[in-house]
Measured scan of single mutants.
Amino acid sequence: SASLEDVKTAVLGLLVILQTKLYTLPASHATRVYEMLVSHIQLHYKHSYTLPIASSIRLQAFDFLLLLRADSLHRLGLPNKDGVVRFSPYCVCDYMEPERGSEKKTSGPLSPPTGPPGPAPAGPAVRLGSVPYSLLFRVLLQCLKQESDWKVLKLVLGRLPESLRYKVLIFTSPCSVDQLCSALCSMLSGPKTLERLRGAPEGF
């Protein structure tokens, strides 16, 4: 439990870093931090981490990651405290083949985003970082199938509809809506759902 406290501190630090690096160059920093966060949550489900502190780590990670939004130009952003989304000039939600690297070039400044813009690109060529939603999407499927803490599952179920409104997140990387529907149906009809959940409301 003591070591998990250190892990929790590290994860919180990564969330803060991602919130900053999403809007700064090099964009590969945001890509790497995002991948680290998603990989860490995957390990929770792989090794069945069920301690309360592990659940709190997942809760905080999902609470942040499910706020990711994308505009029509595929640029990622996060809402501010007033709910207004600021889109990044440097990070996009497109999935890119590994051989192309985590970044790609664009020939010049991008068109203005639909929300308040981030800082304008400084040079004639900007390297865009790929932060594909499919990585998070796979972890969300694991959550629906394996999550043991009701608070975490409730958060994910509550945030998913709003995330799905931003269709560009889903359609720019390999996210299977069929698998999502299947996971939701299995969660509702499967007898093991109630068996594994802690803290579920009576009558769920």
Rank of each mutant, 00 (worst) to 15 (best):
Leu14Arg: 01
Ser56Ala: 13
Leu12Trp: 10
Val139Ile: 14
Ser148Asn: 09
Leu135Glu: 13
Pro161Thr: 14
Ser189Phe: 09
Ser111Trp: 11
Thr50Phe: 08
Gly199Val: 07
Tyr166Thr: 06
Ser130Trp: 06
Val7Phe: 01
His40Thr: 02
Gly158Leu: 12
Leu153Asn: 00
Pro117Leu: 11
Leu144His: 00
Leu188Arg: 02
Ser134Cys: 13
His44Ile: 00
Thr24Leu: 11
His29Gly: 05
Gln179Asp: 14
Lys21Met: 01
Tyr49His: 03
Ala183Cys: 10
Met36Cys: 08
Leu22Gly: 02
Trp150Arg: 01
Ser186Thr: 13
Ser55Lys: 12
Leu37Ile: 15
Ser111Asn: 12
Lys154Ile: 04
Leu22Gln: 02
Leu12Cys: 15
Ser107Tyr: 12
Gly108Cys: 10
Ser55Val: 11
Val152His: 02
Ala183Met: 06
Lys154Met: 07
His40Gly: 01
Leu155Gln: 14
Val16Lys: 15
Lys105Trp: 12
Pro113Leu: 15
Ser182Ala: 14
Thr24Ala: 10
Ala70Leu: 02
Arg86Pro: 04
Ile170Trp: 11
Leu78Trp: 07
Leu12Gln: 15
Tyr45Thr: 00
Gly77Tyr: 04
Arg196Gln: 08
Tyr45His: 00
Leu43Met: 14
Ala70Tyr: 03
Met36Phe: 03
Asn80Val: 08
Thr172Cys: 06
Thr20Phe: 04
Arg69Gln: 08
His47Leu: 10
Ser134Phe: 08
Lys192Gly: 14
Leu51Ser: 08
Met36Gly: 05
Cys175Trp: 03
Lys167Trp: 02
Leu153Asp: 00
Val131Arg: 03
Asp149Met: 03
Arg69Glu: 04
Gln179Arg: 08
Asp94Arg: 08
Asp71Tyr: 00
Leu188Thr: 07
Cys181Phe: 06
Asp178Lys: 06
Pro191Trp: 09
Arg138Met: 08
Ser182Arg: 08
Cys181Glu: 04
Val92Thr: 13
Phe204Asp: 04
Lys81Trp: 12
Asp82Lys: 09
Leu180Trp: 01
Lys8Gln: 09
Pro161Trp: 05
Gly13Pro: 00
Thr24Val: 15
Lys145Asn: 10
Leu37Asp: 01
Gln42Ala: 15
Leu197Asn: 03
Pro52Ile: 01
Gly118Tyr: 15
Val92Leu: 10
Pro52Asn: 07
His40Gln: 02
Glu103Ile: 15
Ser186Asn: 13
Phe137Pro: 02
